[in-house]
């Protein structure tokens, strides 16, 4: 569905991404993990068109999108929920969600249909619709951000650290919503510092370090591999402690 080949990109002079190869199959949840500065968020920014890659190929369903503008990429069904501050603080929650349908603003019936769908799927939008988005809590804000991107009925959702700054209860709500969307057929690519949460949610895992993809595999294989955990994840998955690791890399895990 989505494919990146040899993508190089950066800010100013330097290259944060140094030849990234990545594949997302339809209806999967892929989680990118790795240390700070590995280029995880930058991968999402080049896919959504906010950052132009200096070389490499990005394609969505076989069509090259690396040179497209953010709105053209949106039209192809790819939406991004950034790490923070994605909402318009002095607009109402309802208006924020409506802005998610900016590209379909002329199709009134479709817009209404989508809004009804979002209201049903993300109850907070109906419950706090008239409030300014700036007055929401972090968890509520995250739900509204995801709700907003649903207005375009995306094929692929890019989520940048959905867990950032959320309490456990909000976290469960966000994770539940991501799962629901995936079950409804949406492909998800997320970046997550909370390795246990991210890989727990995902079907596939990608380990990045130093602007390159080091490993790919199923989420369980990466999560349960003590070697990977200690090498790339600072032992953060802690899965060996609960005895689920069987030792040694799983067959699906392939070194890159």
């Amino acid at each position: 569905m989505l494919s990146l080949k040899g993508v190089v990109a950066g800010y100013g002079g330097g290259s944060v991404l140094q030849g990234v190869d990545l594949e997302c199959a339809p209806q999967t949840i892929t989680c990118i993990v790795g240390p700070n500065g590995a280029g995880k968020s930058t991968v999402l920014r080049v896919i959504s068109g906010l950052l132009k890659p200096s070389s490499g190929e990005i394609s969505m369903n076989g069509e090259a999108i690396a040179d497209r503008s953010p709105d053209e990429i949106l039209r192809r069904g790819i939406t991004q929920v950034p790490q923070s501050h994605a909402l318009f603080p002095t607009m109402s929650v309802r208006e924020n969600v409506l802005m998610g349908g900016y590209l379909i603003r002329k199709q009134r019936a479709l817009l209404r249909e989508r809004l009804d769908m979002v209201l049903e799927r993300v109850p907070i939008v109906a419950a706090r619709g008239g409030d300014n988005a700036g007055n929401l809590s972090g968890g509520q804000r995250r739900m509204v951000e995801i709700a907003r991107c649903l207005m375009l009925d995306p094929k692929l959702i890019l989520l940048d650290e959905p867990s950032l700054g959320l309490d456990p209860r909000s976290l469960a709500g966000v994770a539940g919503l991501i799962n629901e969307l995936n079950q409804a057929g949406t492909t998800v690519l997320l970046v997550e510092q909370n390795v246990r949460l991210g890989l727990g949610l995902a079907t596939h895992g990608v380990v990045m370090e130093g602007g390159k993809v080091r490993l790919t595999g199923t989420a369980t294989a990466i999560k349960d591999d003590p070697e990977i955990a200690s090498l790339y994840l600072g032992g953060a998955s802690g899965s060996s402690a609960d005895g689920r690791s069987s030792g040694g890399p799983k067959t699906e895990t392939t070194s890159v």
Binding site: P82, H85, A86, F88, M91, M99, Y102
Partner: peptide, 22 residues
């Protein structure tokens, strides 16, 4: 919609780009 786009771009330029406001 023109006005919403202007307000969106005023409050949060990158957020506006993410919903397709040029």
């Amino acid at each position: 919609w023109t006005g919403r786009a202007i307000r969106a771009a005023t409050q949060n330029p990158s957020g506006a780009a993410l919903v397709g406001v040029g």
